[in-house]
Amino acid sequence: MDERTPATARPDDRDTVCSRCGTISDGMPLTWTCSVENGERHYFCDTCARTHLRAIEGRLDSAWW
Rank of each mutant, 00 (worst) to 15 (best):
T33D: 03
H52E: 03
R59T: 06
R14C: 01
P6G: 00
D46T: 13
M1A: 15
T31K: 10
N38S: 13
G39R: 08
H42A: 10
L53K: 15
D12I: 00
V36E: 09
C18F: 08
R10G: 11
A7Q: 09
L53E: 11
L30K: 08
C45Y: 02
M28W: 13
L53S: 09
C45P: 05
D13N: 14
P29G: 01
I56C: 04
A49G: 03
E3P: 08
W64F: 08
W64S: 14
S19M: 05
S35C: 11
E57C: 10
T33I: 13
I56E: 01
N38Q: 11
R54L: 11
H42V: 15
P29E: 01
G27P: 07
T33Q: 08
I56G: 01
C18L: 09
A9H: 00
M1Q: 14
T33A: 05
D2G: 07
W65P: 15
C48A: 09
S62A: 12
D15S: 15
H52K: 01
T47W: 00
G27M: 02
R54E: 14
V17L: 08
P29A: 01
S19Q: 06
D46Y: 08
W64G: 04
W64Q: 14
T5E: 08
T51Y: 00
A63N: 11
R41K: 09
S25R: 04
L53W: 13
C48D: 07
D15Y: 04
